[in-house]
Nucleic acid binder design. Structure first.
Lengths: 152, 152
DNA sequence: TATTTGAATTAGAATGATTCTTGTTCCAAA
DNA sequence: TTTGGAACAAGAATCATTCTAATTCAAATA
């Protein structure tokens, strides 16, 4: 492998360009940039392993551990979101618009569902008295249109 | 271990008393009954390992594998519910009333939150056109009253 | 420019919850 | 009484993820 295969920055300013939408800032190293790019180009909520395989196209030497590491830092920086469904392997998502996920129980596909109206869980459920709510995870399960038409 | 330590049924009809609220029916063997009992007496959403330790009081010879097996069958029979938060180990719950869970991000405690009003996810999120919804998982995260008072 | 420092990266080992496998035990029907 | 199938136990296997230790790199400092 040539020494310049990776760690080459697109910006002349080197690696020290930090970016964070929320949370701690992240140094956008070439690997992190590639991992982010893969997610930004994906709408299918890939797993860490999926990301690994896609990034290998650009950086054949990248390791799965680095992908996990990049995903962790990008998540901490608020650049991507981790999506967990039941106990299946985590998926990742670069859609930062507020949304929840729809999971097809037939094919496993995960798709985004964007908000139509403000949602306040306190209106629907009796929460422990005095609790402070920080966030609500909503996962909608069902059968996607594709699977419905396949069965018909 | 005496041969009658377990497999002794409370009912004279032997093991063949089946029960199911929803889903496939479950043979309520003594082990399954004990696992269910432990959950029915718990409000803290124990993990499989917690259940294992509690059941060992009555059936010291039970194995963790059997506990997992019992939990699986009881879940399939709709007698208990599996509660998954992020990718942490599964917890189990014998509260069959419709409810969601509140998770304290400080102490990890999980508590039930019962419905106050009908909740229709389709009103709040734009779902894939033509999708059929089967269920919605709602997990509310925050800080429980106990942890709030500890920090004050 | 050379050195230092700390983060990024890598490969592989370790972890840990869960599932699987295999052999055994038991119940109930034949 | 025999037999078939489920329940059970013990431990191995799985597998996503995390950790470890060693290396490489980039930016700051000397």
């Amino acid at each position: 492998m040539s020494p310049s295969t990776h760690r080459s920055s697109a910006k002349p300013s080197g690696l020290d360009c930090r970016l964070a939408v929320l949370g701690t800032d992240v140094r956008l190293t070439p690997h992190r940039r590639e991992v982010f790019q893969v997610l930004a180009e994906s709408t299918d909520h890939p797993t860490a392993y999926d990301v690994f395989n896609r990034v290998k196209g650009k950086s054949p030497s990248i390791s799965l551990a680095t992908v996990y590491n990049c995903l962790e830092h990008l998540t901490a920086g608020g650049l991507i979101k981790q999506v967990n469904v039941e106990r299946a392997q985590s998926r990742y998502c670069a859609n930062l618009h507020e949304h929840v996920h729809f999971h097809c129980d037939e094919c496993g596909q995960v798709s985004d569902a964007h908000p139509k109206a403000d949602f306040d869980p306190g209106l629907f459920w009796q929460l422990p008295a005095g609790a402070r709510i920080t966030r609500t995870d909503v996962a909608i399960h069902g059968v996607c249109p594709t699977c419905i038409s396949k069965k018909a």
